[in-house]
């Protein structure tokens, strides 16, 4: 009888798991590096419009944002259309040229992404664009969502 006994392979049946933490840590570092935790706190209401013929901005490092829309007031109310750059609202439109010029010096290939609320008026946008022309930041991008 005993000669029919199945021969057991000499190797262990377990999958070695000692390298698993390394693999997981590698993934972890990837996601840690790609995550952007801090977003700008929006002080204006932003509801982007949609368009068909849009392009992606590949180089996100180059992008600087300008937000335009009705100001959020306490108590869920909306005020007049305002311009926000970084974390603060810019009341003096004429100051934009200096702000953007400083950014252009830091990053000569700057792309200005204009994130404008769909109901805000064109007039404010022209004023901002005129300032951008003075600052020398000519590459702009009207941020829109994809139409579906």
């Amino acid at each position: 009888m005993s000669q029919f006994k199945k021969k057991q392979a000499g190797t262990k049946q377990e999958v070695p798991t000692s390298a698993m933490p390394d693999v997981v840590f590698m993934l972890l570092f990837f996601f840690m590096v790609t995550t952007v935790l801090r977003e700008v706190t929006l002080k204006v209401k932003l509801d982007l419009t949609k368009a068909n013929n849009i392009e992606k901005i590949e180089e996100k490092r180059l992008v600087s944002y300008i937000y335009m829309g009705p100001e959020r007031l306490p108590g869920n109310q909306l005020g007049e259309d305002k311009v926000q750059i970084d974390d603060s609202i810019v009341d003096d439109i004429g100051a934009i040229r200096n702000i953007m010029y400083d950014k252009l010096i830091e990053e000569p290939r700057l792309i200005v992404s204009l994130r404008v609320d769909q109901n805000s008026e064109f007039g404010l946008l022209t004023d901002v664009q005129k300032e951008l022309q003075q600052a020398g930041t000519f590459r702009i991008n009207y941020s829109t969502k994809r139409e579906d």
Partner: peptide
Amino acid sequence: FFLVTTTINVDTGIGMVLPPP
């Protein structure tokens, strides 16, 4: 945690080049 918090959002829009003043 990082998987959940990551948003890989692509920025899309209409690109333009402004003329010099």
